[in-house]
Nucleic acid binder design. Structure first.
Lengths: 353, 353
DNA sequence: CTTGGCACTCCCCCGCCGAGATTGCTAAGA
DNA sequence: TCTTAGCAATCTCGGCGGGGGAGTGCCAAG
């Protein structure tokens, strides 16, 4: 311990690192506190259980392990998992089996965006044996393709916005003054001519205003269109598809119902869930948030693995797996990555060139 | 048992009926087996507990009550609940409190169909303190308002169908031969002229064919339109919105996780759920299915209350509450009815005249 | 037919105990 | 200085048993 650097995560010597990694690995597999002796028996450590005990005691002092009670084995702490994920575990590739099932199950998915997302979520839930959730694509970086204003009555209509990834929104609108079907058709045409091939994000109010004033239409019409485009770009409360709640019940740590109740509520509410993963949208690699890192009291026993998926060059949504802290990070991160890749691929296939 | 009538539900004399009703009522309230003595204490029966015991023994022989074990009180059987619901309980009105909350929570709901359904589901889940699920409207009895075919590329496009209740479907289509934007516009106009004010159900393939041949468009175009209209009329797998799963965890009978797991799966799958309530769509009053009546092994501990909601003159969907068999049928049936009424009202307000 | 009384049954809670697992510590050895 | 064998101490967990209590069924009297 003499020359050790004073990092927040102090450097671990080789043996400690190996022991920590093994404890985490073993605990993930068995859900039982890991004893020094079982380690020396199962793994070839080259030292006795007494030595392992000493090391474990130091790992506990360093905050990587905790003991449920005096005469029990050790269990990883959040910091222990973190170190494991960041430094110790090997990055896994998607297993052949998983890759096959992923391909199989998504082969015959429909071409409809929503159904693609839903079926991807279901597959991810099933393969991960945890709760999977997927945010539906944000359209703000996708390319505008078409807007159609449909006349329903003198003062009502529907606005439909189509982007390169599909139909992104339909909005009912009400106007203050009468318009004719022809007004709306001409406005649609004007907007389509003007806005083509730009990303939704880049389309501003004045682009719309230019079209409406040209056609002598009121500001109420302009506002309706702007709001339709805005809704299309990103719904204020992003929608999440989720699947696999029942798998959580299988985890031994959730035999206690209290832990489950709040999770179910959070999953239904969606908003908290979204906020938890939102910051992972800009990342390249899969990210794991572990226990307290989630910053939500009720979720300290859970972890979330998140990875963005893309449409074209931009990340448009995220795929996540929610499970016990004791989750197989390596496999799930590989699985999430692989699924995200498959999904991105599929969106590119389906997308409108 | 000699001269007893051989009805499936034998006639109950007044006192038996009252005792059965009270046992059910009491068990619903307490979730504890009901003892003869507690009945005579809490309710003014005018007879002693010994008499009640005799009556209870006969009710058990008749299949209305069961005893968890020899020295326990009685619990209603499915038949007991059924008799209670059909003959014994009083039809409740929506309580003032519930009516107020219903109004409050749905006041500021959006005008978008999906959001109306979602928020109704959430409110129903919250007020019922059980799992609520609502089928999204079937459009086959709603009136056709508009179809718009949007050109995306020479061989792809989007079909949007608007009915009196809102936008009912958007479908991407692919064609075998090139078409121009103008082709699609003219076809849209032709279809709109031809199909206006008919219900989706009444629109047949030949109506579409008439329009496409008139414009010299191929059968692939016709098929695309027909399939869009068909999808709009009724999606083959009806979508269900659900809310309140976490309330099930609060029920004492579901402390056993095994019962919950299968329910969660069923709720996620949606299909079973839909099949269970589908036949209640044609009813006027709220219907209850109790335990075994649901016909699903994993759901024998549950009951479902269902009531259809309408758009205009037709039932278009259903609102259901899923909870323990021991649910307050009277209150929940009133709540479901009231919510359905509110929802129907709201759809009529929002619907396109 | 009703009712008070009573014996009987069964569940449930609680405390107790012993087995087993695992640790920390100590002292000897490399 | 690090490692290791040995050992006492600690804590959990499952099983066992008994007491309390709730509730029933039955009987005999009203």
């Amino acid at each position: 311990m003499s020359g050790g650097p004073e990092h927040p995560t102090p450097e671990l010597d080789k043996r400690k690192a190996f022991i920590l990694a093994t404890v985490v690995y073993e605990y993930i597999a068995t859900a039982e506190p890991v004893a020094s002796q079982s380690l020396t028996q199962k793994y070839n450590l080259g030292v006795s259980s007494a030595t392992v005990r000493n090391e474990m005691a130091e790992l506990e002092a360093g905050g990587f392990l905790v003991q449920p009670h005096t005469s029990a084995g050790r269990v990883p702490s959040d910091a222990g998992y973190r170190t494991y994920v960041d430094q110790l575990m090997q990055r896994e590739q998607l297993s052949v089996e998983d890759r096959r099932r992923l391909g199989d199950e998504l082969r015959d998915a429909s071409r409809e965006l929503d159904e693609i997302i839903e079926s991807t979520t279901r597959v991810l839930g099933r393969l991960s044996q945890n709760l999977a959730f997927v945010t539906k694509p944000q359209h703000d970086t996708t390319t505008f393709r078409h807007i159609q204003l449909i006349w329903l009555s003198a003062r009502t209509g529907v606005a439909i916005v189509v982007t390169s990834i599909g139909v992104s929104a339909q909005t009912l609108f009400e106007l203050l003054a009468d318009v004719t079907p022809d007004d709306l058709t001409r406005l649609s045409n004007a907007l389509n001519a003007r806005l083509g091939n730009r990303t939704l994000r880049d389309i501003g109010e004045k682009d719309v205003a230019a079209a409406t004033t040209e056609l002598n239409l009121g500001d109420d019409v302009k506002d309706a269109v702007v709001s339709a485009l805005r809704t299309a770009a990103s719904s204020e409360q992003p929608v999440i598809s989720s699947s696999g709640t029942q798998h959580l019940l299988d985890q031994p740590e959730f035999q206690d119902l209290r832990k489950l109740r709040s999770i179910l509520r959070i999953v239904e509410e969606q908003k908290t869930l979204y906020d938890l993963v939102a910051d992972s949208m800009t990342l390249e690699a899969p990210a794991a948030k572990i226990g307290h890192e989630l910053g939500v009291e009720e979720m300290t026993d859970f972890s979330i693995v998140t990875v963005p998926y893309r449409f074209g060059p931009h990340a448009v949504g995220m795929l996540s797996i929610l499970g016990p802290r004791r989750m197989p990070y390596g496999r799930l991160m590989a699985l999430a990555s692989g699924t995200a890749q498959t999904l991105s691929q599929r969106l590119d296939d389906v997308g409108i060139k």
